[in-house]
């Protein structure tokens, strides 16, 4: 149960960070924190008690292992995260180039 709560906690913490953020790069880091909550949730779902890592090279195949599928999903998720985070940083830098500020309240945005 604890890992699930941890995932929710981290997700909410990241959201809190985004909502109170005053700096676009700070916001992107908070998005990464949010994203890490999904890794924890996925791994928690695949975890089995008293099981070992799903690497069959040096253990008998009868040994109880944790679910390898969620680990593959988590790896995919990390790849997605890399793409999204790097794009976000690039976008934040472009915003800075065009408006000389990283503070969203000082940048003339679109309203209405």
């Amino acid at each position: 149960m604890l890992p699930y709560l941890l995932a929710v906690w981290i997700f909410l913490a990241g959201l809190y960070g985004i909502v109170t953020s005053r700096d676009l790069i700070h916001t992107t880091v908070c998005v990464s924190v949010c994203q890490s909550s999904t890794y924890i949730l996925l791994l928690a779902i695949g975890y089995r008690k008293h099981a070992t890592a799903p690497v069959y090279g040096d253990i008998p195949s009868s040994r109880r292992v944790v679910d390898p599928i969620v680990q593959a999903l988590t790896l995919t998720d990390i790849v997605v995260a890399v793409a999204v985070s790097s794009l976000l940083i690039a976008l934040a830098l472009r915003v800075y180039d065009s408006s000389n500020s990283l503070d969203p309240s000082q940048i003339v945005g679109q309203r209405g």
Binding site: C34, D77, L88, L91, S98
Partner: peptide, 25 residues
């Protein structure tokens, strides 16, 4: 042009994706 729009778009869409991923998990 007001590039902040594209940053907002990227952040919000990504968080929407997390909701979906939570549901899938």
């Amino acid at each position: 042009s007001p590039l902040q729009g594209s940053f907002n778009f990227a952040v919000a869409q990504t968080i929407g994706a997390f909701l979906v991923l939570f549901g899938i998990a």
